[in-house]
Simulated scan of single mutants.
Amino acid sequence: MGAVALPFVRPLLVRARRTQAVPAGPPLADAATLPPHDPHRATWPGGEVTSGGVTLHVRETPGHGDTPAVYVHGLSGSATNWTDLAGLLATRAPGTAVDLPGFGLSRPLASRDYSPAGHADALLCFLAGRGRPVHLLGNSFGGAVALTVAARRPELVRTLTLVSPAMPDLRPDPRRVSDWKLLVAMLPLVGRRARSELAAMDPRTRAEQIVRLCFGDPAIAPEHRVAEAAAELAVRARLAWAHEAAERTGKAMVAGWLRGESLWSVAARVQAPTLVVWGERDRLVAPRLAARTAAALQRSRLLVLRGVGHVAQIEAPEAVARAVAGMWDAVEAGTWEEPG
């Protein structure tokens, strides 16, 4: 069985463990049941919200549905990474896109704990304070955080969507060579010089470099989204904690990998129906991990998108929305467990 095919999406079979088959593709919602995609949609309004003793800056998407959606960005990302997808899913769920502590416009926690476990603790408390289960979606580092929350507090997570989650992988990948500076900057000891050089870049240049690293086809990145990213980087450069949060979070994540801390065992404990989405051209988290990640989860389906990079929710929001909405509909109908 392979990932589902769309007109611009082809199945990609990625070898999992020898004894594991590639999980089935997800059911897809009819595109007519989703609102039209507005590529020029402005970012959703934001503000600070305190829940469960944790204060985060969030962006709220008004919508309809009994189960709200919560969106979690990746390393050095923010709530604005979900603008398009949250809009497409608003007819099924109101959305809350969070800025993790120290990222976006969220202030750091008093503990200054930027470890993956620290971020997961903060999100877990925030969700528990709201007192209702959610559809939880995470990209990259945010996917790893969401995975941990779902494993630790299953009653809080109705469904889980992981977009290129930051699963541990220390094997070299030749595709990353051209983007070595951003990658080296994440390393705990040797990345200091690369981090200094990145910090010295003007916001527009840095935004363009991030697009080149994260998009499968950087040429399709909308100009207004690049400009938004540059403006956000300029604002963050003036926040006293921004550099500390990005550096210490990246270092803590890689250090955990080096210590052998494994998300694979965490994934095995997740009970929620889970959609795994991966871009075939992901340069940050290797697509070879896609099938293994889905196979490690008990109730998962896998979607691999041709020509897409690390941020599928930005690069191919309509394809991702159809898969996510299809999962939500199938779970509601009790058909998620049926063979693909």
Rank of each mutant, 00 (worst) to 15 (best):
P11V: 10
A200K: 10
V211R: 09
H243G: 04
P7C: 11
H37T: 03
F215Y: 14
L303W: 01
R107Q: 09
A144W: 10
L28V: 01
G142E: 05
S178M: 04
D202V: 12
R299N: 14
R176C: 05
P218W: 13
V304I: 10
A333K: 15
M253H: 06
G63A: 07
A321P: 14
R18T: 08
L258I: 07
L160C: 09
G52Y: 01
R259M: 12
L75K: 06
Q209H: 01
D173M: 08
P168C: 11
V184S: 06
T274N: 06
P317R: 09
R17Y: 12
V254N: 07
T55C: 11
A330K: 01
A219T: 14
G279Y: 02
R59Y: 06
L13F: 14
C214R: 01
G47D: 04
P172L: 04
I210N: 02
T274H: 05
R248P: 12
P116R: 11
L284S: 07
A79L: 15
D84P: 00
R306P: 01
G138P: 15
E228Y: 03
A316R: 13
R238H: 13
T83D: 15
A240D: 14
R269K: 13
D329Q: 15
A245V: 05
P11F: 09
V72P: 13
A323R: 11
G52A: 04
R281T: 10
R193C: 07
V320M: 04
P222N: 09
A97R: 01
V235H: 06
S106A: 05
L109S: 11
A5K: 08
R10V: 10
P317K: 03
P101V: 14
P68M: 02
R283Y: 00
